[in-house]
């Protein structure tokens, strides 16, 4: 089980991080549009399409990565007071009841929607530049599959946690500034009171 969890974590992280770099492309691409518009008086016809395609791809493909790091927002004011075991039991039920049906619908219906779009090589309606969007619609399916795999790993996490009363944390990763500082402060405190 641990093996699969590690596999899913790294799969999600790999895709999430790879697509995260779109933000740099997006910053430069949009910056380029501003430059050619003001410096050369010739705006591009594609900037708008390209920016929403990058934004949409980025956040959809980051969904599973965010899930693996516990990044999706929860109303956890009660949840966090519970024992890990209790948390895991509740989570397990809700993953089966709430998570998989939605994600499965995303994959299957997304497939129907995207394949239709491939069928007529659909382009974006926003500009006459004819930017293709069938690949973009396929992102829904890809994001759904990643979430599905990560969801299985989360279920396994719950099962492990019910047994051991301890969550299997994801491996060390990039953290928010405040989390790094908080962790450092906790370390320091531990050192101060051995």
């Amino acid at each position: 089980m641990t093996g699969f969890i590690r596999f899913a974590d790294s799969l999600s992280a790999w895709f999430g991080k790879a697509f995260a770099w779109l933000i740099v492309l997006m910053a430069f691409g949009t910056g380029y549009e501003v430059f050619v518009r003001y410096a050369l008086n010739s705006p591009t016809p594609w900037a708008l399409d390209v920016s929403f395609i990058m934004y949409g791809t980025l956040f959809m493909m980051g969904g599973a990565y965010t899930l693996s790091r516990g990044g999706h927002v929860r109303g956890d004011f009660l949840y966090r007071l519970w024992q890990p075991k209790t948390q895991a039991k509740v989570d397990l039920v809700l993953y089966l009841l709430f998570f998989f049906p939605g994600v499965t619908a995303l994959i299957l219906s997304g497939w129907k929607y995207a394949s239709r779009s491939w069928g007529y090589a659909e382009v974006s309606i926003n500009s006459p530049a004819g930017i293709p969007i069938y690949q973009f619609k396929t992102v829904m399916v890809a994001a759904g599959i990643l979430l599905f795999i990560q969801g299985i790993a989360q279920v396994m996490r719950c099962i492990l946690c019910i047994r051991t009363n301890q969550w299997l944390e994801p491996e060390e990763d990039i953290r928010e500034t405040e989390d790094i500082l908080l962790a450092r402060a906790t370390e320091a405190e531990k050192d101060a009171h051995p």
Binding site: A27, F52, Y55, G56, F59, A105, Y113
Partner: peptide, 26 residues
Amino acid sequence: IFDLFINQTYTVMSNEVLTAVPLFLF
């Protein structure tokens, strides 16, 4: 409902106002 769900998901993905969110976060 399945078609509606996909349609709404795509609406979020192509929401032009929200494109500013990742850039400001970055």
